[in-house]
Computed example of a mutant assay.
Amino acid sequence: MSSLSISSAGTGHHSRALVLFSGGQDSTTCLAQALTRYEHVETLGFDYGQRHSVEMEIRPSAREALTEAFPEWRDRLGEDHVLSLDVLAQIGGSSLTDDVAFAMQADGLPNTFVPGRNLLFLTLAGALAYRRGISVIVTGVCETDFSGYPDCRDDTMKAMQLALSLGLERRLLIETPLMWLSKAQTWQLAHELGGDRLVELIRRDTHTCYQGVRDQLHDWGYGCGNCPACELRARGWAQWRGGMV
């Protein structure tokens, strides 16, 4: 677990959390965990001109599926917020926002990297948390099974936690439950949180595919099966089902 997590989470004054929720496997797992720990949980999504905009379309149904499958979470799940960040598409240069093929860049990062994306996400999440009286921000970034994105690293999260706490003059915690987990371990965490019901919900009701494909259902969920996000999700599923956790 991330070193940013605290043992008292979900108790005392840390009773309200804001989950950065894209509708994908990772953020849905984080949302499920937050609903087991906090009295009140709100969600935040970002429309930044992503090519796989289908993730914005399935977010509401994924939230609803959680409360249908786990009625005990319904009273804890609060408001959903969506903010526009089309400035990222205006900057361009990423295969997630431009119609270009997936490839590696000269700097060693994949061109799926959207510079500043998570930094902006967390800054706006901090501002919203301030207005909503929330002290915990939960995000599904990961340094173990990721594409090399520098804004997913533990050091970046610690720096953002400090900057937001100072800049808002309010103690904010950034929790990263998946920071040191592989994709197989993320599937395992979902199973520990909600058993086969949650695993099946994540498999069928979430979206990860960068191509936005929703008409091909694989063992691990919907997707094209070829983009980096699908390959990572499929590999993690195979390792988890094979007991390689």
Rank of each mutant, 00 (worst) to 15 (best):
A32R: 00
R171W: 04
D145G: 07
N118F: 05
T36W: 01
R132F: 14
Q239W: 06
E79Q: 15
G242C: 03
M160C: 11
T28A: 08
Q185A: 15
D47G: 08
G92W: 05
R74I: 08
K158D: 01
S165A: 07
A69W: 04
T112D: 02
L85W: 08
D47I: 10
Y222P: 13
E169R: 09
F113L: 10
G12I: 08
L201Q: 00
E79M: 15
V136Y: 03
G78D: 05
L124P: 12
D215Q: 14
D107L: 07
L164Y: 05
M104G: 13
R131Q: 15
Q211N: 15
R241V: 03
R63H: 07
G221L: 02
H207K: 03
T28W: 01
T67V: 15
S2A: 11
G126N: 11
T208Y: 03
E39L: 11
H218E: 11
T43D: 01
R170L: 07
D86Y: 15
M104R: 11
H14M: 14
C152R: 01
I58A: 04
M244F: 10
L96I: 15
Q188D: 14
E68K: 11
R204L: 08
I91L: 13
G10Y: 12
T139A: 12
G108W: 05
R51Q: 09
D196G: 02
T144H: 14
D154L: 10
P115I: 01
H13L: 13
I6Y: 06
L217C: 14
E57T: 12
D80P: 12
G108Y: 04
R117C: 03
I202A: 00
L181W: 01
R76M: 07
Q90H: 13
L85Y: 09
A62Y: 05
C224L: 07
P177S: 03
V54Y: 05
T112Y: 04
V41W: 03
L77N: 02
C227L: 03
T156N: 05
L181Q: 13
G236H: 00
D98C: 13
H191Y: 05
V87Q: 15
L66N: 04
D75H: 13
K183H: 06
N118I: 07
M179H: 01
E175N: 03
Q211Y: 14
P71R: 09
W73G: 08
V138L: 02
Q25A: 06
G223S: 10
R37Y: 06
M160T: 07
V136C: 07
A103S: 14
F121M: 04
L189Q: 07
V141P: 01
L193F: 01
N226T: 12
F113N: 11
G12N: 09
W220P: 05
H52Y: 12
G195V: 00
E39N: 14
V245F: 03
C142F: 01
A103P: 10
V100R: 13
P110I: 06
N226L: 11
G12L: 08
A190L: 02
T36K: 09
C227I: 04
E175K: 00
I58W: 03
R132A: 15
T186D: 00
G49E: 12
L198C: 08
A65S: 12
V54A: 07
Q33S: 09
A163M: 09
W220Y: 14
L172E: 00
D215M: 11
T156I: 10
V100F: 12
T43M: 04
V138N: 02
L166F: 11
G212W: 06
E42K: 08
